[in-house]
Amino acid sequence: MRDMWTGGKLRLRGVEPEDWEGFRDLAQNTVDVRNTDLVEPPRSDESFRSWTAERAGRPPGGEAFRLVIEGLADRVFAGSVTVAETDSRAGRFRMGIVITRDHRRKGYAAEATELVLTYMFAEQRYNKCEVEVHAFNDASLALYRKLGFVEEGRLRQHEFFAGSHHDVVLLGITAGEYWASHQQPSVR
Rank of each mutant, 00 (worst) to 15 (best):
V39F: 06
V31G: 06
Y119T: 05
L38R: 12
V83Y: 04
A139I: 07
H158R: 14
D87R: 09
A109P: 02
Q28R: 15
R94L: 10
R145A: 15
Y178H: 12
L67F: 13
A162G: 09
G7D: 03
R154S: 08
R125A: 15
D74E: 14
A90P: 01
V81W: 00
S181T: 15
I97Y: 02
I97H: 01
R49W: 08
A122L: 05
G96Q: 04
F65P: 05
F77P: 07
W179S: 00
F48I: 03
P17R: 11
S88Q: 13
G7Q: 01
R154N: 04
G7C: 04
I69E: 03
E54C: 06
S47I: 01
R75S: 13
A139C: 07
D167V: 02
E16W: 08
L72W: 08
R58N: 08
R104E: 09
G57H: 10
N127H: 15
G22Q: 05
D138I: 09
L26F: 07
E151V: 12
H165N: 08
T36M: 10
Q183A: 15
G163K: 09
E54W: 10
A175I: 00
R13I: 05
Q183D: 14
L115F: 02
G62V: 11
V31T: 13
K9F: 08
H166T: 01
A110C: 03
E111S: 06
A109H: 02
A84G: 11
C129M: 12
L26G: 04
V133W: 05
Q184Y: 00
G8Q: 14
Q28S: 12
R188H: 12
S181E: 11
T82W: 07
I97Q: 00
R104S: 02
K9C: 01
A64C: 14
D87P: 01
T118G: 09
G91P: 00
S80P: 00
R49P: 03
V83E: 04
E46K: 11
D19P: 07
I99F: 00
A109E: 00
I69F: 01
S80R: 10
A27F: 11
E85S: 14
V68G: 02
L26I: 11
Q157R: 14
K106Q: 15
D138K: 15
R11A: 07
G163Q: 08
